[in-house]
Design a protein around this nucleic acid. Structure first.
Ligand SMILES: [Zn+2]
Ligand SMILES: [Zn+2]
Ligand SMILES: [Zn+2]
Ligand SMILES: [Zn+2]
Lengths: 132, 132
DNA sequence: TAACATTATGTAATAATATAACATTACTTA
DNA sequence: TAAGTAATGTTATATTATTACATAATGTTA
């Protein structure tokens, strides 16, 4: 079965908002901002988030408990995500680097475990913050 | 100034427990298990965890909100962590691979951001779980 | 040793993040 | 249309983490 083409109502509302803000945003902040659209409870947000993560429209920044829209034009690589995070201003960018993703997809650990997914978060200072 | 050599009472209690269980463990589970040692409140645990993470004795598994003792004999690389996580049995291993860490330490993103830390989590099925 | 700064502790309250449980509705497709 | 799957609505609750404030222990320096 192919991936679904159309999002449900709540999924679309949540995605629209995440895409609009264009930076990592937390679940309860989403909730507060979509209440005017009729979404009333945390679970409605979390269910939409789960689905959107699953189909690669958004990603979760695990170290921040925040969600961000995928920038890789409907991420074919939702199972292979990498981000850079500025520890000063909290700016987050999705890294799109085919050499990096190739290297990590092919990485074999010593225990012989078969990976089907990874998430990588780099931390540092963005250009703006490093000159301050 | 050199890193502190000796841990405080609460830090030692929490570290001892994490090292004993030898698998990722959550903050409130730690709390329940060290109450007989006199630690009564979540904050006492979280403060010890913060410090232990900072000095590299333990690491946080971000995707699981759990903490695990460092296996790299007092991790000189607490700022460069990689784990494999079995999505079936939740077994977690710290990956110690100098080629990988060298590759990631030297990775330069297109925005020219200077990284001083990274965390990488691989997901898949461990050997035991993949034969089931 | 006295003064000061830093680190750690104790305690209570509360904030922030996420899920369980259950009833209902909409969508798909055979 | 009947059955199966996915999504929704709602309430309550579980889990994870921090704020705020008072105190004590430790380390540093004069
Ligand atoms: Zn993406
Ligand atoms: Zn910045
Ligand atoms: Zn380590
Ligand atoms: Zn396993």
């Amino acid at each position: 079965m192919l991936k679904q083409e159309t999002l449900s109502k709540n999924q679309q509302i949540v995605l629209d908002y995440i895409e609009k803000v264009n930076e990592p945003i937390k679940a309860y902040s989403i909730l507060h901002n979509v209440q005017k659209k009729g979404i009333k409870a945390p679970l409605q947000v979390y269910r939409a988030l789960d689905k959107l993560v699953e189909i690669g429209k958004i990603h979760k920044i695990e170290s921040r408990n925040a969600f961000v829209a995928c920038k890789n034009s409907n991420c074919q690589i939702s199972k292979a995500t990498a981000f850079s995070i500025c520890e000063s201003c909290e700016e987050v960018s999705e890294i799109s680097d085919s050499k990096l993703s190739k290297y990590l997809k092919n990485f074999q650990d010593k225990a012989g475990m078969k990976f089907n997914k990874y998430n990588l978060e780099f931390f540092g200072l963005c250009k703006k913050c490093s000159v301050k």
